[in-house]
């Protein structure tokens, strides 16, 4: 019943994409996305720093040394100087990366994932459900990110969990909105109807058949959220609503530095550089991911 010619043509199409060695993959990536590779490098350095913070940091980040308060950078045992309690800036930066990354990843992943499921569900059910849900999301989107986060922290109180909740809440509608528009297009493709015709439950269709098809916008939102979350956490901590002393966090270091900035500028400069560099790295990486996943922007 099968014609031999059909089979042969099929066979030829296969295994076109043979597996490339890792080195080649890296080289291709560097050539096609030089900035993205740079961003990825920053992100990787940060991750390694965060994981091995205990080994990399020369001192205990909360160990106070009253014989070396406000030590200037270049001090023999404190290369980046110390703060008002004589705590090592370098060690606090290294340990601070843990806070930043933890908040960044947890918030980005939870926020984007919740948003994706809500967005796909909204598109799938459509009708009144979609209309009402979108209006609720509109309300959330009406607030600027930082104001909404501030309001949430003000209600829940400071602390790292509450900060994460405060960052996740504004992320959800953003991702839901983007994913919904993609899911609306996917909903019209016959395989969704085919899945319904096979008698699958709504949750199964949403999670197993539609969600994998919106991975591209999801990953784009996720990578954008990473940088944003780090920045938001730093902002909230800077305003005194986020992570509390003595936990090392970059935003918190900036707050403390503001009092002594004129005499000891390094207190502010190094955490400021750390925040900027990490957000920069995540954004570059995010842009590269978007360029790769969005077929409209793909040049080759």
């Amino acid at each position: 019943m099968v014609t031999p010619s059909e089979i042969q043509v099929e066979a030829e199409f296969e295994e076109v994409a043979a597996k490339k060695p890792w080195g080649q993959v890296c080289k291709d990536l560097m050539r096609k996305q030089p900035l993205g590779t740079f961003g990825l490098a920053i992100v990787l350095v940060m991750i390694v720093t965060a994981i091995f913070a205990d080994y990399i940091a020369p001192h205990d980040p909360i160990q106070e040394d009253f014989s070396a308060m406000f030590a200037e950078p270049g001090h023999e045992s404190y290369p980046l100087g110390t703060d008002e309690f004589g705590r090592d800036i370098l060690s606090r930066l290294v340990h601070g990366s843990r806070t930043a990354l933890m908040v960044g990843f947890i918030c980005a992943i939870v926020g984007a994932t919740l948003g994706m499921v809500i967005g796909v569900a909204s598109a799938f059910f459509g009708g009144l459900f979609d209309l009402l849900l979108q209006r609720v999301l509109d309300v959330f989107m009406a607030f600027p990110l930082i104001i909404l986060a501030l309001a949430v922290v003000a209600t829940l109180g400071p602390g790292i969990q509450n900060v994460m909740i405060a960052i996740i809440i504004p992320f959800v509608p953003q991702c839901a909105r983007v994913v919904r528009s993609n899911a609306l297009a996917i909903r019209e493709i016959p395989y969704v109807d085919a899945a319904r015709a096979l008698g699958f439950s709504n949750s199964r269709i949403i999670l197993r058949h539609m969600v994998p098809n919106v991975m591209a916008p999801y990953l784009i939102m996720l990578t954008t959220f990473l940088g944003q979350a780090i920045l938001l956490e730093a902002s909230l901590s800077f305003l005194g609503l986020g992570v509390q002393d003595p936990i090392p966090a970059w935003g918190l270091m900036l707050t403390n530095a503001s009092e002594f900035f004129e005499g000891s500028p390094w207190l502010a400069i190094y955490p400021g550089v750390a925040i900027s560099l990490s957000v920069f790295g995540f954004n570059l990486f995010g842009d590269a991911v978007r360029d790769t996943l969005d077929p409209k922007l793909r040049s080759r």
Partner: peptide, 22 residues
């Protein structure tokens, strides 16, 4: 839903888009 796919199944017009690509 119990009947769909089990007792009555359906073949669609567009084979190119009736299978989930992922």
């Amino acid at each position: 839903r119990d009947i769909r796919g089990k007792d009555i199944s359906m073949i669609f017009q567009e084979p190119m888009t009736s299978l989930n690509p992922v």
